[in-house]
């Protein structure tokens, strides 16, 4: 650490001010909007908690929240498990690993909106890639449960490589002598994993979990393009519902209430994981 110096503020303040200006202020504004009935062109009408009362009576909001939670839980759980399993399997000298890593890097930054459209053609039920190739007859997009599964599958396709690459990186960083000592005492792979690998991986697991959960809650592009929230409202996640209410139908107040609710939901989930992650960064 350098000695204390006024100049540190000069370094830090622009970024802090920027974030305050463009993140905190809009958030506060959003919270304010959520207490109003907003009509462009006429003054906002203060309506207290009525938007929130409506939120808890609104069947669509409830079902959207449920859909979002299912999407996040299933998607993230499967990605993490798959990524972990693959990382453990390939954590050994293997000729093709370089190529595998390269290929696995490709989905990470693939434009989500394009991915949504692409999978629209892949899930096409009458001769699309999957049904056509495997001679299946799965109602990928026309059945409510399958449609939810479909957007989850896209998320899994895009983000399993992310989990895989991170876990692999950490596994490869574990010095060999950790294992050598262990193998002398016990020969079972499971115990090695349980008592050596897992404790080392634990902070990373929590970190990846955290990152994936926050991102998964924000999902918008994929259902927006792949299913447009349908069929019915089967894949209308909270972000899409907020967008629909606010940007399409100009009910800014209610839309803000939905967004604030979503924000609180994410925060609650994050807070429960928060203490562990703090250690990683301090």
């Amino acid at each position: 650490m350098h000695k204390d110096n006024r100049i540190k503020l000069l370094f830090l303040l622009p970024a802090v001010l920027w974030v305050l200006c463009f993140t905190i202020f809009p958030l506060i504004y959003s919270v304010r909007l959520s207490f109003f009935n907003v009509k462009i062109g006429s003054p906002d009408e203060f309506i207290g908690l009525r938007n929130y009362v409506h939120l808890f009576q609104d069947q669509r909001a409830r079902s959207s929240a449920l859909i979002t939670l299912i999407f996040v839980c299933c998607g993230v759980a499967i990605q993490m498990t798959l990524g972990m399993a693959l990382a453990l399997l390939f954590n050994r000298p293997l000729r093709l690993r370089g190529i595998l890593r390269t290929v696995m890097t490709m989905p990470l930054f693939a434009t989500p909106i394009a991915v949504g459209f692409l999978f629209f053609t892949i899930f096409y039920e009458e001769g699309g890639l999957i049904n056509g190739l495997l001679h299946l007859n799965v109602p990928w997009l026309s059945n409510p449960y399958w449609a939810l599964a479909s957007i989850t599958i896209v998320d899994i396709w895009q983000w399993t490589p992310f989990c895989f690459l991170i876990f692999l990186a950490v596994l490869q960083g574990i010095p060999a002598h950790y294992y050598e000592a262990a193998t002398l005492e016990t020969n079972k792979g499971w115990s090695v994993f349980r008592f050596i690998t897992l404790p080392i991986l634990q902070p990373t697991i929590i970190l990846v979990l955290l990152l994936r959960i926050t991102e998964a809650f924000k999902v918008f592009d994929i259902p927006f393009t792949l299913t447009t929230g349908g069929p019915g409202t089967a894949t209308q996640v909270l972000t899409m519902y907020a967008y629909r209410v606010g940007m399409r139908f100009f009910n800014y107040g209610y839309s803000s209430a939905i967004s604030v609710f979503l924000f609180i939901l994410v925060m609650v989930v994050i807070m429960t994981l928060f203490k562990k992650i703090r250690q990683t960064y301090q």
């Binding site: 809009p26 958030l27 959003s30 924000k218 907020a242 967008y243 606010g246 967004s259 703090r278």
Partner: peptide, 24 residues
């Protein structure tokens, strides 16, 4: 550490929550 975390926590905010204020 808390400053770093504070920055990081900005990523938690769902974009849709700030969409309308940003627009305005």
């Amino acid at each position: 550490g808390n400053i770093a975390l504070w920055f990081l926590s900005q990523r938690v905010l769902p974009p849709v929550a700030t969409a309308i204020p940003f627009f305005l």
